[in-house]
Amino acid sequence: MIARVRAGEPEAYADLVRAHTGIALRAARALGAGADAEDVVQQAFFKAYCSLGRFRDGESFRPWLLSIVANETRNTVRAAGRRLTLAGREAAMAEAQPLIPESADPAVAAVAGERRLALLAALEQLSEEHRLVVTYRYLLEMDESETAQALGWPRGTVKSRLNRALRKLGRLLPEGGLREGREGGDEDG
């Protein structure tokens, strides 16, 4: 599809935008863009289009785009001179999460909500690099290779920082909070 965009087919880029807007919005919200998420994503798509000449053939578009979204989010947050509060980030994440079906047990839904709040509070206490690697790997459901590409880090660095971040999260979360959310551990090792 990138070749079609480079060849000047406007519909090809529109297809790329349609295919990746959802994940780009989730990334911008999860990384702190809040109400500016749509503007961040629009700017990221514009920058991606202008930078397609630097996109390497054979690479995955999604991680490359999400690294641009992450940079735009950082720039937007810094330029505004503010950080989202925990409540604001929770609201942004709730927008990106599917609604709980009416048939769900209210007690289970309440516990899930409490766990999500505890996780977000713990994430806020991590360094930016640890928060980023956990967000990309688990909240945005990227595999290790995609996470490495999006962050511009070697795969070994992703593994080691993710390991340290998860250990820190484990200490910050209430008893069993991380274990219950990640049964069976990480399939990538």
Rank of each mutant, 00 (worst) to 15 (best):
R78P: 01
F61H: 05
I100H: 11
G81R: 10
F61N: 04
A91F: 02
M93D: 08
E95W: 12
L99S: 13
L86W: 05
V77H: 01
S103N: 11
L65E: 08
E90H: 02
P101C: 13
L66A: 02
T73D: 04
E72G: 12
Q97Y: 10
L65M: 15
T85D: 08
R89F: 03
L86S: 06
V69E: 00
V77K: 01
L99D: 11
N75W: 01
E102H: 10
R83Q: 00
A87W: 03
A80D: 09
I68T: 12
S67K: 10
V69Y: 02
F61T: 06
R78I: 03
Q97W: 07
P101L: 15
T85W: 00
N75C: 03
A70N: 03
T76G: 06
T85C: 03
S67E: 04
L84T: 02
V69M: 03
I68A: 08
A70G: 02
L86P: 00
R78H: 09
R89M: 10
P101N: 14
A80K: 14
P63A: 11
G88V: 06
P63T: 05
S103P: 00
S103Q: 13
S103D: 13
R89W: 06
A91V: 02
Q97E: 14
A79M: 00
G88L: 05
N75Q: 11
A92V: 15
R78L: 12
A80E: 14
F61V: 13
R89D: 02
G81Y: 12
A79S: 13
A80R: 15
A92S: 15
L84H: 09
R82Q: 03
P98N: 07
N75D: 12
V77L: 01
L99C: 01
L66R: 08
R62M: 12
A87Y: 03
A80N: 14
W64S: 05
E95I: 11
L84D: 06
S67I: 04
V77G: 01
A92N: 09
L66K: 08
L84N: 03
A79D: 09
A94S: 05
G88D: 11
A79Q: 08
L86N: 04
R82V: 06
T85G: 07
L84E: 14
G81D: 05
T76C: 12
W64Y: 15
L84C: 04
P63E: 05
R78G: 00
E102N: 10
A94L: 08
L84M: 14
R78V: 08
E95R: 13
F61L: 13
L86M: 06
L99E: 15
T73G: 02
W64H: 11
L65I: 13
E72L: 12
A92W: 15
G81P: 07
L84W: 07
L86E: 10
A79G: 11
T76E: 09
A94R: 11
N71P: 01
A79P: 02
W64T: 05
A94G: 01
T73K: 07
I68F: 09
R78F: 07
L65Q: 08
A70P: 00
T76P: 02
N71K: 08
A94T: 08
G81E: 07
E102K: 09
V77F: 05
P98Q: 10
A92K: 14
A94I: 00
E95T: 10
T76R: 14
T76A: 14
L84S: 09
